[in-house]
């Protein structure tokens, strides 16, 4: 996938180029601001997309990078959502500290869970994560004195963000808030994937046996990334709670775990932006299709999925990358994928 560049001889230059911000990334992030101007009626959807993108990003870190499959990632999303909701319900409605506490709570749960996760791979992991997700869902369902059960958690009142910005009905604050949280955690994820730790994760994904043969212990790495991923998923859930001021059992639903997996694979796993692009396309498609036909909107989604998997096995981003990094693609779009000018003298 590496584009040929003239100064191939120097490994430092090569690695530095690999991690530099590209023009297309700047374009992408700037365009996330467009809804404020172009589609102000859709800011609520926008914040949902940002939340889902963050959730997909958290899954990408374990699935796309470390190769750890999960069919129960909603457990951490939901745990964060309920934690944030309960904190606000019990009288502390300050969003940012609430977010931090919810993330920490989900991270703790993820840390405990990681001791089990790091011992298994493949099919066993699907079963374990699936079971764990169902377990948590039913726990929340039965503890209705705490969670409100099937009626959802009522009485979540958020204080204004930074004491100044109220969460309004049109979702202006919600979108800002969700977008900033997404961007900050994206920066963290980007740093992780470019670090030696991120390199080891990719090594685990590519060949766990060989990792042992070069003296690397995979389990501590897996425990760490699983915990980080759980924090991010929990924060995503918390943002959803805070921006909607309600929590329903749906945050823990199996459907949510399955959807996020679909979104990530649709967008392209292991590329950071895959989950983001997947979330945008999936949620907009769902919004549009359900507008056309509220009853059978999963039908076109199914068609979309089959088409993507048949023709773009590496997801939408994987297909785009193949196109852009082809010879003709570079002639047309090379300027977009070129790194920003920032030659460091050293």
């Amino acid at each position: 996938m590496a584009a040929a560049s003239p100064a191939l001889a120097d490994p430092h230059h090569y690695l530095a180029t690999q991690i530099r911000w590209r023009r297309i990334e700047v374009v992408f992030w700037l365009s996330t601001l467009l809804p404020f101007v172009l589609t102000p009626d859709y800011l609520v959807l926008g914040s949902q997309i940002a939340v889902t993108a963050l959730f997909a990003l958290s899954l990408d870190l374990i699935l796309g990078y470390a190769g750890i499959i999960s069919l129960g990632h909603a457990a951490f999303f939901g745990f964060g959502a309920y934690t944030a909701g309960l904190i606000a319900k019990w009288g502390w409605g300050e969003p940012i500290t609430g977010l931090a506490i919810a993330g920490a709570a989900a991270g703790l749960l993820g840390y405990l869970m990681s001791f089990v996760i790091s011992r298994f791979r493949h099919l066993a992991l699907i079963m374990i994560t699936l079971g764990f997700g169902l377990l948590l869902l039913e726990a929340a369902n039965s503890a209705s004195w705490l969670t409100g059960g099937a009626d959802g958690l009522q009485g979540v009142r958020m204080w204004p963000l930074l004491g100044a910005f109220k969460f309004d009905l049109w979702g202006v604050t919600a979108y800002w808030y969700a977008l900033i949280v997404l961007f900050l955690l994206f920066l963290v994820a980007r740093r992780i994937t470019n670090s030696p730790f991120g390199l080891s994760l990719r090594g685990i994904r590519e060949n766990a046996v060989r990792m042992r043969a070069i003296g690397a212990e995979s389990r501590p790495h897996i425990r760490k990334i699983y915990t980080i991923s759980a924090v991010m998923a929990g924060v995503a859930g918390a943002v959803l709670t805070q921006t909607t001021e309600t929590v329903s059992l749906g945050v823990l639903d199996f459907q949510r775990s399955a959807d996020i997996l679909v979104i990530l694979i649709l967008g392209g796993a292991g590329r950071l932006y895959g989950g983001l692009v997947g979330a945008i396309i999936y949620l907009i498609a769902r919004d549009q299709f359900s507008g056309i036909n509220p009853q059978y909107w999963y039908f076109p989604i199914g068609v979309l999925l089959i088409i993507v998997v048949l023709f773009l096995p590496n997801g939408i981003l994987g297909g785009l990358a193949q196109l852009i990094y082809s010879e003709r693609g570079q002639r047309w779009f090379g300027w977009l994928t070129a790194p920003l000018r920032r030659e460091r003298k050293s």
């Binding site: 670090s195 730790f197 080891s200 990719r202 070069i214 003296g215 690397a216 501590p220 760490k224």
Partner: peptide
């Protein structure tokens, strides 16, 4: 990757490789 694991810097996630 192998060298980072040997030198025990493979757990660093806040610095670029």
């Amino acid at each position: 990757l192998a060298i980072c694991e040997r030198e025990r810097i493979a757990r660093t996630w806040w610095k670029n490789t």
